[in-house]
């Protein structure tokens, strides 16, 4: 059974149809890159998979391990193993990163019928994970993303990915707002989390990110559809020729 199956997905926001029948199949261990120009519907796809309110699915379905994902609340999806790394992670003043991570991890564990981690147990786990990703511990004491640089925000997303151990990770424009050094650090973090059981969907506008996170498949989106799929070489081809050809095709 596939891990994630998006079938003929049609999505509206108010009166505009953004996705016009999108199909995508992701198996365990695979890394898929979704590329496309601005406005092609890439972020909409990531939001709909995570369950963000405000999108109206008018047709099609999304199955996660064969279960209907669209019937689940966003927190149920997270507990089942769907993770969205946000393009713009929000700042939450007054909530320490530490408290947020502990609350979130225990909420997911509770939903899966697993035991709650006590503060010392959690501390041990989060320290190990932070260390393996070279994330400084003092980040945990600060308010969630408050005063973080762009790079720190993305590393916080990767820290969460490592801590929650999801089955499928959707990385929404992870490269936006990052300089080349921050990009490399973030990509290293993602690569460290690749495994035969885990799938990744890397959404990006630029080919650059894919120099660091090498995909197995590349899909080109234009005007709410996947217009071309191929191997990693497709990304290089796009870099040379641009998106215009696909806009005409769509």
């Amino acid at each position: 059974m596939s891990l994630l199956e998006v079938k003929n997905l049609k999505v509206r926001v108010e009166d505009n149809e953004i996705l016009h029948g999108l199909t995508l199949t992701v198996n365990p261990g695979e890394v898929h890159a979704i590329m496309g120009p601005n406005g092609s519907g890439k972020s909409t796809l990531s939001h709909v998979i995570a369950g963000k309110p405000g999108y109206d699915v008018t047709d099609g379905e999304i199955l996660f391990r064969g279960e209907d994902l669209l019937e689940m609340e966003p927190d149920e999806r997270a507990a089942k193993g769907v993770f969205l790394a946000f393009q713009y992670p929000v700042e939450i003043p007054g909530v320490t990163t530490w408290n947020f991570l502990h609350t979130a991890l225990n909420a997911q564990r509770k939903a899966r019928g697993e035991s709650q981690l006590s503060s010392p147990e959690f501390l041990k786990k989060v320290r190990e994970v932070a260390k393996s990703l070279n994330i400084p511990q003092d980040m945990l004491k600060r308010g969630v993303n408050v005063g973080f640089s762009g790079g720190e925000k993305k590393r916080n997303e990767i820290l969460q990915m490592a801590l929650f151990e999801p089955a499928v990770c959707i990385l929404d424009e992870m490269d936006s707002g990052l300089d080349i050094d921050a990009l490399r650090i973030a990509a290293d973090g993602v690569n460290a989390l690749r495994s035969p059981e885990r799938a990744m969907v890397v959404i990006t506008h630029y080919q650059r990110l894919l120099n660091y996170i090498i995909p197995d498949f590349v899909h080109v989106m234009s005007k709410g559809r996947v217009v071309k799929s191929g191997g990693k070489d497709l990304a290089l081809e796009l870099e040379a020729s641009g998106y215009t050809q696909f806009e005409d095709a769509a």
Partner: peptide, 13 residues
């Protein structure tokens, strides 16, 4: 939404 996407129920968030 950010909190819910991390596993918190509506009331918890």
């Amino acid at each position: 939404f950010y909190l819910r996407a991390r596993g918190l129920s509506e009331k918890e968030a």
